Simulated assay, not measured.
Amino acid sequence: MSELRIATCTYQEFQPEMGTPIRTTAGHPRFALSYQIAGHAKLVTPAWALVKANLPEDAYEFQYRRQLSAAGLDAIRAELYAIAGAYDLDSPAVLLCFDRLNKPGYFCHRTHFARWYAAETGELVPELGAVCAPKPWDQGGLF
């Protein structure tokens, strides 16, 4: 099996040269896309109940990580490999969502997935869309 590389982005910021676009949202995009989605990663998609729960980020991430762990790393990798493998394994499988990360206070399941995946595998999952500038304490600055 070829190595599967994974990245994340928004539907809005994704460009085809970034990789293979994969849906990870409970709902379909309600706007026209200039590219075709390769498939839907259902095991990575948050459950509707979680999406609608309006939880604080730490509680959301805890519940989402439980969902990912219940699905299992091997099954998630197999699902992503099957979708990306049908297109182009030489470019990253790009997990797409609606939420822009450059808005203060916003969070997204794709960031939580990236942290979970890195913890499970040691492999980093880069964000290809715009992100907020790091806070001073994230850079070893003020605190």
Rank of each mutant, 00 (worst) to 15 (best):
Y106D: 10
V51G: 03
E120C: 13
E13Y: 04
W48P: 13
A38G: 09
A133C: 06
F107G: 13
L128K: 09
T121F: 08
A133M: 07
A114T: 08
R30P: 01
A78N: 07
T25S: 13
L68K: 03
H109N: 03
T10W: 08
G27L: 14
C97V: 04
Y60N: 09
Y64C: 04
E3G: 11
V44Y: 05
A49N: 05
G141F: 10
F31V: 08
R23N: 15
F62G: 00
G129T: 05
G105S: 10
I37C: 05
L128F: 10
H112K: 13
K103G: 11
E120S: 14
H40N: 10
A114L: 08
R5S: 14
S34I: 00
R100L: 12
I37R: 06
E17I: 01
H28Q: 13
P92F: 12
E3W: 05
E17R: 13
Q139N: 03
D58M: 15
G105Y: 11
P136D: 04
F98T: 11
P92E: 10
V51C: 11
F14K: 12
A38N: 07
A118N: 06
R77V: 15
L43F: 00
L33T: 07
L80F: 09
S34N: 14
R115C: 06
L33W: 06
A7Y: 04
V125N: 09
